[in-house]
Amino acid sequence: MPIFETQEETPEIKERLHRVGITNLRTVAKINWKGSVYTFLPLFEVTIDVPAEKKGIHMSRLVESITESMSEAVESEVLEAHSSLEELGKCVIKHIEKKHPHKRAEVWIKTHLVIPRETPASGKTSYEPYDVEVGVIKNYDGSFEKVLRVKVIGNTVCPHAMANNNGKTHIQRAIGELEVRAPFSKEIPLEDMIDVVESSFSNPTYTLLKTVDENTVVQGMFTNPKFVEDVAREIFAKARERFPGKIRVKVISNESIHKHDVIAETWS
C-alpha cells in the first residue's frame, strides 16, 4: 500500500509556524546539584518551526526523534546527571538536530525543586517544594538563550489596616513568580532565584512548624508589613541587581477579607 507524505505538500495558507511539536511528555531526569544527584520526573514540551511552504511536520518522526533522544539519554546522558535542567534541555535539542531538520527549536521543562530549610526557632528540617520551569530556545541564527521561572509561596501583612486599627490587620498567602531571560552561557541558579522571591515577602512560609516556629513566623510577619506592590518591587530590585538578562515579576495576593485577589506585575 503506498504511503502519501501529505506533510510535504504545499499548504493552502503559506505562513511560517514558529512552534509545532509535542507537549506534556513526562520522562526522567537526574541533575547533579551542589554535589548531590537529584531525580526529577519533569514535563517536557518540545517544538520546532515549520516553513511556510511545508504543510506540516512528520509528527511521528519528531516523536521518534524525541523518544530516541531520550532513550539514548537514559543510557548515556539523563541518568548520567547533568549539571542543570537547562543543560539537559540543550542536550535534547542537539539530539533533535540529528533527526528532524529545523531552524528554530524550544524545549521547556516543568518540575519541582525541593529544598531543605531550617525552621526559624526549633531548627528542624522542613522540605520545601517550589515550582520551577526552564526553557531552552535555539534561535534562527543558531544562538541559544534560556528562560528560568520560579514560583514561591509566602505571605503578606496589610500595612494600611495595621495603621488604622491599632496594630490589628489582615494577613494573606501570596504567590511570587520570577522569570529571567538570558543568554544560555549566563549562570543563574534556580535556588538563588527562589531565595530572592522568598526573602521579599513579609515572612517566609514553611511546611513544618512547631509552636515556637509559628510564633516566630507570626511575629516576623507583623514586624514587616507589606503591600503586594512592595513585594513585587523588592523582588524586581533584587533580581535586577543579581541576575543578567530580562526580568519579569508577578505577585498575587490571595486576599483574606476580600472576595477577589490582588496582583502586581512588572518587567524590564
Rank of each mutant, 00 (worst) to 15 (best):
I171Q: 11
K103N: 15
G135F: 00
V157N: 07
N165R: 11
K259W: 11
P244T: 06
K250Y: 08
M1I: 14
R149W: 06
A182E: 03
P183H: 06
E241K: 15
P101R: 12
I247V: 12
E72F: 07
H95K: 14
H58P: 04
D195H: 10
N139I: 04
V157K: 01
T205M: 13
T47F: 12
A237T: 05
L178S: 03
E177C: 06
E241T: 03
I175P: 04
I3K: 08
I247H: 01
D195Q: 13
N215W: 13
F243P: 00
E15R: 14
E229D: 10
K103S: 15
T223N: 14
V217H: 01
Y38Q: 10
V251G: 01
K186L: 07
T169G: 12
P120I: 02
E68H: 14
K210S: 13
T169L: 13
T156P: 11
F144V: 08
K151M: 11
K55M: 12
C91W: 13
K94R: 14
S69Q: 02
G123M: 08
E8K: 15
S126V: 03
V196M: 05
P42E: 04
V228K: 00
H258L: 13
F184N: 03
E118K: 15
K210W: 12
V50S: 07
R240V: 09
E80Q: 07
L113H: 11
T47Y: 11
G135T: 04
E177M: 09
V157Y: 02
S122G: 01
M1W: 06
S83P: 01
E177I: 10
E86D: 14
R149C: 01
S199L: 04
V180D: 02
I22R: 09
I263V: 15
K99F: 13
K246F: 08
F201T: 04
K151D: 06
P42I: 05
P225T: 07
R233P: 00
E64N: 14
R240I: 04
I137W: 06
L190G: 00
W267T: 08
G220W: 07
T266V: 05
R19Q: 13
L178C: 06
P101G: 06
S256F: 14
Y206V: 01
I194M: 05
V196I: 14
L148Q: 00
K55H: 11
V197T: 02
K34T: 02
V134A: 00
P204G: 01
E214H: 13
P2L: 11
